[in-house]
Amino acid sequence: MIIKGKTYKFVNGNDINTDLIIAGKYTKTLDMNELASHVFEDLDSSLLEVIKSKIIIAGENFGCGSSREQAPLALSYAGVKAVVAKSFARIFYRNAINIGLPVIIANTNLLNNDQEINIDLVQGILSFKETNDFIILNNMPTIMIDILNKGGLVKYLKDEGQFRI
């Protein structure tokens, strides 16, 4: 699985919590476009336009807080292609993969705003288009790659009927 795109890097990228990604008052809906229209609203409502088709670059503990899957859903429906962070909150990380939003752990000090990057999840390589530099990523467990390859857990379980490791 290969993801290509331009980066959007948060200036203060640590501890971006699920309430900031999508406020609790907007989570009670099944209309995902409506949900996505409120992404990052409390943080900076102009981000909705900025992050479209981008790869988000953040710091430590991205997605901490609530178990709300609406957080990765809002990002995904807002057009975010992937999130690269130094670390993720556990539930957010799993939720993102379950809904098919790629999440990548890397030292994001090495990444800047507005860079073209390629991420190869199976090989575990993040490369920069302009310089041909690359970063080696930690291997993702096979089950996670399998779920991402299916586009999320729904399709994975629909096809497989059960978990396999």
């Binding site: 178990s67 539930i91 379950n98 809904i99």
Partner: peptide, 8 residues
């Protein structure tokens, strides 16, 4: 866990 994990 998230909602889809729970569905699993």
């Amino acid at each position: 866990v998230g909602a889809t994990d729970l569905a699993g």
